[in-house]
Write a protein that binds this DNA or RNA. Structure first.
Length: 349
DNA sequence: AACTGGACCAACCGCACATAT
DNA sequence: GATATGTGCGGTTGGTCCAGT
């Protein structure tokens, strides 16, 4: 990063953006990409700080944003992901094409939180309120909120495994070879939730026990790229040929986003109606499938690896039996279609 | 019509981390 | 290694809208 020459600080504009400012920013990024955000205001002729421009672009101006009310499916997914990830809004939003972390966060704070409380569920711990209030201190270490280090990559050989899992907060265990009786031994070496004995109450009230078994597809690795990464934004602006986000369909009819994740096509010939990230490394492709992504995965931060222990497999229509959801009126499961209407162009849609 | 309080949401703030110098 | 700068993220704030009084 180049340092910026110092100089007299100009009084920067704050507050709501005017349509003219939006136009300037849009036009600039459309033409040149954002490049270095700190230089964007100057180049675009805006009296804003780069940070403000970045936020405006990410939260409002990005062409791939899906505006409007959240669907029931999105709501269910947010609740589910929050139960696993906690307030990792960016990671949650990454699974909701066209939604931003800010949007998800606001939706959670303004709507879902309230709704859960009305149903007697503590939104922080996803436990019944009475229980959560009586033992919140103890629950804090048992909540389904993971630190980055605790988020586990599911891989056949565990070669990507990061640091050890702490006993208290560990919910999902790697089950293939640990032999500790804490997890289901999935044939593909993926994960299950039976190591959850310390938080059985949570599991019992929250998740479908059947779904905790390793399904036919096992539990996939999850990679959660930030939708606001520089490469994403640059490529959306058409800057980088090497990082183009154009979603192409290959000869098998699978989609392929060109951001370095050749992604899912080799794994999921039946890739429709899946949550895209669940297709990464699913056992349906076995070890070869995992290896297929090895190089790309290695380039990610560990915090980008998370493990999905929910449903023991793909989060798709019918994966969760009706009536099992603690959240009552939710649909059985989520059918996931991204902004392009394609379920596999998940990376940079 | 005027006021009030709650809900919603865009934007800001502060911090952590990555990276260049 | 120290420092400066850029970026990303989660928490918080403040403005606006709207229903109720």
């Amino acid at each position: 990063m180049a340092r910026r020459a110092g100089g007299p600080k100009k009084k920067l504009r704050r507050g709501l953006w005017s349509p003219e400012e939006d136009d300037k920013l849009m036009n600039h990024i459309a033409k040149y990409g954002h490049g270095c955000w700190s230089s964007v205001p100057k180049l675009a002729g805006l009296d804003r700080c780069g940070k403000s421009c970045r936020l405006r672009w990410i939260n409002y101006l990005r062409p791939d944003l899906k505006r409007g009310a959240f669907s029931q499916e999105e709501e269910d997914l947010i609740i589910h992901l929050h139960s696993m990830l906690g307030n990792k809004w960016s990671q949650i939003a990454a699974q909701l094409p066209g939604r931003t972390d800010n949007e998800v966060k606001n939706f959670w704070n303004s709507y879902i939180k309230k709704k859960l409380r009305q149903r007697g569920i503590d939104p922080a711990t996803h436990k019944p309120l009475a229980e959560a209030s009586s033992g919140r201190a103890a629950a804090a270490s048992r909540t389904a909120v993971f630190s980055d280090a605790e988020l586990i990559l599911s891989s056949t050989a565990g070669q990507h495994m990061p640091p050890p899992v702490t006993a208290e907060s560990y919910v999902y265990s790697r089950s293939s070879t640990d032999g500790g009786g804490s997890g289901h031994a999935c044939s593909d070496g993926s994960l299950s939730l039976s190591g959850y004995d310390q938080t059985a109450d949570f599991a019992a009230c929250y998740l479908d026990p059947d779904a905790l078994q390793c399904g036919p597809s096992g539990v996939p690795a999850v990679v959660l790229p930030s939708v606001s990464s520089s490469s994403t934004l640059n490529s959306m602006a058409g800057l980088s040929p090497a990082a183009t986000t154009t979603t192409a369909t290959d000869e098998q009819g699978n989609t392929n986003s060109g951001n370095g994740f050749e992604s899912t096509q080799s794994c999921s010939a039946t890739a429709t109606n899946h949550l895209p990230w669940l297709e990464l490394g699913t056992s349906s492709c076995g070890a070869a499938g995992v290896d297929h992504y090895g190089a790309a995965l290695d380039e990610l931060k560990w915090s980008d690896y998370v493990f999905d222990g929910y449903g023991g497999g793909q989060y798709q229509q019918g994966a969760i039996p009706a009536g099992q959801c603690i959240y009552g009126d939710s649909k059985d499961a989520v059918q996931f279609v991204d902004g392009h209407g394609l379920s596999t162009s998940w990376c940079l849609n």
